[in-house]
Design a protein around this nucleic acid. Structure first.
Length: 748
DNA sequence: GATCTAACTTAGCACTCAGTAA
DNA sequence: TTACTGAGTGCTAAGTTAGATC
């Protein structure tokens, strides 16, 4: 299947459309579609079809057989999940399912999996979970005063010490609890929010941590040019080490990377070096490369004590620079280190890959903090570019990077109030969309018949965004970034129309490089009117022309804003992801299941979302090996089980003969052993299934960014699944608000 | 409406480190 | 004790969106 797709994919191109004339020249740009995406896919495909795949095929078959034998219950669930009637999206490499066409249905509208029930709430909106900002705090002088007081109180009592993440204060005004009492987490979600657009009242931090200065290589480590050793100037040597460190990486085999690197490297050379070093292929970095490899090896070989020392030093830096005081709370900073210099690693066929990312100096840094805070000090002998006091933004530090000229920021950790509030708000907006989505859908269906082309295009694009969870698709600077697209920027070459395909009517085949140059490949059966509209949009266009030439993200979002306050294209992704999770959890969870089975169901629901959102990952390098190891464990466990069963049988026979207490006890013991081993076996089998299904799908992205955590928390509570089973520590910190406020009745 | 920019979210990859098996 | 492994974490690239400016 996967090979088949790859093949189809390669052949795809605007054969089915009449490209004779060019109607929309104004918007047409002669873009080069480099097909980086396709190359990357092909590479994956090749590696997949290579040795490792063949080696593992017998194991996989074996596993399949084992799966067959899994409990009846398990099997039923799997069938349910894989939806036997072609609802699953088919992705690159066939990693999702063997079925390729998603059928449109009235109720199973947006989901990759068929839904027996309509996507309707089972009860009225539960307003308990509405994100209702309480009374405006900044309007309330008393409270502002109090907060200010708390700020200064905090400085007084907390500044010199404290290693806890949050400052402890009680509800009456900020007194610490007794020493040994457990530190209570700050429940910012129970407090009032700023509603005047300001993000904080007080902000104090220590500024960023700079990477260590460059340390020249020892003299024995030499660089060779054209076979001759050559001592490089420190600046040129530093840049050379960036390349040397990457020698093992695929990047250094790419022409653009090499070209960009060499060009930027030469800029760092002295005139003499410049005149000597004229060809990259004559450069020999291997000694440097070996040196860094040895260093990395040495780091691994460090003694426990040495490692501990480094750990302590890192902890000290974290405590000093990794936290800030925002209003009256000590909050964790997300990224407090300045990005070190190196070679730019753009993704896909990025035209700037290999360029030198220069070292950031204090003179490049803008510091943002409160006027009345202790300002961070620039390193001795240097000064900041600017000291700013802007409480309308959330960042602490910013600088402009030299590759794209974009601004980089230091901001707070996801567990912080400022990020958490925004996250919560995001899900509330998505829940509001739930209330008006049917109306919006009716509207865009109506717009498919509009007399105006721009409205039809808007309506069809919105249909794709809603149905397929596509990203908005901003226009991008040609030549500055990799050629990737989203919905609004789709081009003729990214779409093929099939009036009939695989027994389905009106099939649209989408194939394009999305964010991070991850391929989006999907064949989907659409409504006739959508199909006819697409045919119309394609008329008289060429491969490189925009499919939606009368549309862009700005127009689309303005329209969405009119339909619902706060609605943007992105909200549809959040909404559809969350509603899919909720729906899938309902479908897949069986009350009789044990905890591991329930977790498998959760992961499968999560997986359905990841598939919908096209969250892919490269299969882990050690995947085949780890599956093999797991299978070995399963085989051993089976042997163990069979032995235990024999022993039980024997014990039973003994007990029947002897009829004494001792042999009865022995039977009980053996029974327990059989039960224990069975459970262990079942866990391993579930683990193998889960891992196999997860081979090329990344669950983390949707879990962290698209799924309303309250759905997961409610599910855990309802089925008594420990929250730790689905969220690790970091995730629990990020979603503390949801964990605290949600009960099992929560409905998205 | 086009373009630019700032601010923020979303994303996959690489590396680390703790747990576990040998 | 060592080697291995995978979950967790950090890093930073690549998106979206809104607002300013022309």
């Amino acid at each position: 299947m996967s090979g088949d797709h790859a093949h189809k994919q390669q052949q795809m191109h605007p054969g089915s459309v009449d490209y004779n004339s060019h109607k929309h020249k104004d918007k047409h740009k002669d873009r080069e579609h480099s097909h980086k995406e396709h190359k990357r896919d092909k590479e994956r495909e090749n590696s997949k079809n290579g040795n490792s795949e063949h080696k593992s095929s017998s194991e996989r078959k074996h596993r399949e057989k084992e799966k067959e034998r899994l409990k009846h219950k398990e099997k039923q669930k799997e069938e349910k999940f894989h939806s036997s009637d072609g609802k699953y999206r088919d992705k690159e490499n066939g990693f999702v399912s063997s079925l390729s066409i998603k059928v449109e249905e009235d109720n199973g509208y947006h989901l990759p999996i068929k839904h027996e029930k309509p996507l309707k709430r089972e009860r009225d909106e539960d307003d308990r979970y509405e994100h209702k900002p309480k009374k405006l705090k900044v309007d309330n002088e008393k409270k502002v005063k109090k907060r200010k007081q708390e700020d200064s109180d905090y400085e007084e009592r907390e500044k010199p010490k404290k290693r806890t993440k949050e400052v402890k204060k009680d509800s009456t005004g900020g007194k610490k609890k007794a020493k040994n009492e457990p530190q209570e987490k700050w429940k910012w979600w129970e407090e009032e929010k700023y509603t005047d657009g300001s993000k904080w009242r007080f902000l104090e931090h220590k500024g960023p941590v700079f990477p260590p200065p460059y340390e020249p290589l020892p003299d024995r480590i030499r660089f060779y040019y054209d076979g001759k050793a050559m001592k490089l100037s420190p600046a040129a040597e530093e840049v050379a080490t960036f390349y040397a460190k990457m020698l093992d990486h695929e990047y250094t085999t790419k022409d653009i990377f090499r070209k960009n690197f060499f060009k930027d490297w030469r800029k760092e050379m002295t005139p003499e070096e410049k005149s000597k070093i004229t060809e990259l292929k004559k450069c020999d970095f291997t000694e440097m490369h070996e040196y860094f490899k040895a260093q990395s090896e040495a780091r691994k070989q460090m003694t426990k004590e040495e490692k501990q020392k480094i750990k302590e030093e890192n902890e000290r830096i974290l405590q000093e620079y990794g936290y800030c005081v925002m209003d009256n709370h000590r909050e964790r900073i997300g990224n407090f280190r300045i990005e070190p210099p190196g070679l730019f690693r753009g993704r896909g066929d990025h035209p700037k890959m290999g360029k030198l990312k220069r070292r950031i100096r204090p003179e490049d840094i803008i510091i943002n903090c409160s006027k009345d805070s202790a300002h961070p000090q620039a390193p001795p002998g240097s000064r900041w570019k600017e000291l700013r006091h802007d409480n309308k933004v959330t960042w602490l530090v910013s600088w402009t990077e030299n590759i794209q000229g974009s601004i980089k920021y230091i901001m707070l950790n996801p567990s912080s109030r400022i990020k958490g509030e925004k996250d919560w708000q995001k899900y509330e907006t998505a829940r509001r969309l739930k209330k008006s989505v049917e109306h919006i859908r009716a509207q865009y269906r109506e717009d498919w018949r509009s007399k105006e082309m721009r409205i039809r295009q808007r309506a069809v694009a919105l249909y794709f965004i809603d149905k397929l969870a596509l990203r908005a698709g901003n226009e991008k600077d040609e030549g500055e970034t990799a050629d990737t697209v989203g919905c609004c920027s789709l081009r003729v070459e990214h779409i093929r129309l099939h009036p009939q395909m695989d027994g389905q009517d009106y099939v649209v085949e989408l194939d394009f490089p999305g964010k991070d140059s991850i391929r989006y490949y999907n064949k989907v059966s659409v409504e006739k009117r959508v199909f006819k509209n697409l045919q119309l949009f394609l008329e008289n266009k060429q491969a490189k022309d925009d499919l939606f030439d009368r549309l862009n993200t700005s127009i689309l979002n303005k329209h969405l804003q009119e339909l619902m306050d706060g609605l943007t294209a992105k909200v549809f992704r959040t909404y559809n992801a969350s509603i899919t999770l909720q729906q899938q959890l309902k479908e897949l969870t069986s009350p009789d299941d044990n905890i591991p089975e329930k977790i498998l169901s959760y992961n499968r629901a999560n997986r359905a979302v990841a598939v919908l959102c096209n969250h892919q990952r490269a299969p882990p390098k050690t995947f085949e090996k780890s599956m093999h190891n797991l299978q070995t464990k399963i085989d051993e466990k089976k042997k163990q089980l069979s032995a235990a069963k024999k022993e039980l049988k024997a014990a039973k026979a003994d007990a029947k003969m002897l009829r004494d207490e001792k042999s009865k006890k022995a039977v009980e013991m053996k029974k327990k052993a059989v039960q224990r081993i069975s459970e262990q076996l079942m866990k391993l089998e579930v683990q193998a299934t889960d891992r196999e299904e997860n081979k090329q799908i990344a669950l983390g992205t949707s879990k962290l960014n698209y799924l309303d955590p309250r759905i997961s928390v409610a599910w855990c509570k309802k089925w008594a699944v420990p929250i730790e089973k689905i969220y690790n520590k970091t995730q629990r910190e990020k979603f503390a608000w949801a964990i605290d406020m949600t009960d099992e009745d929560f409905e998205f």
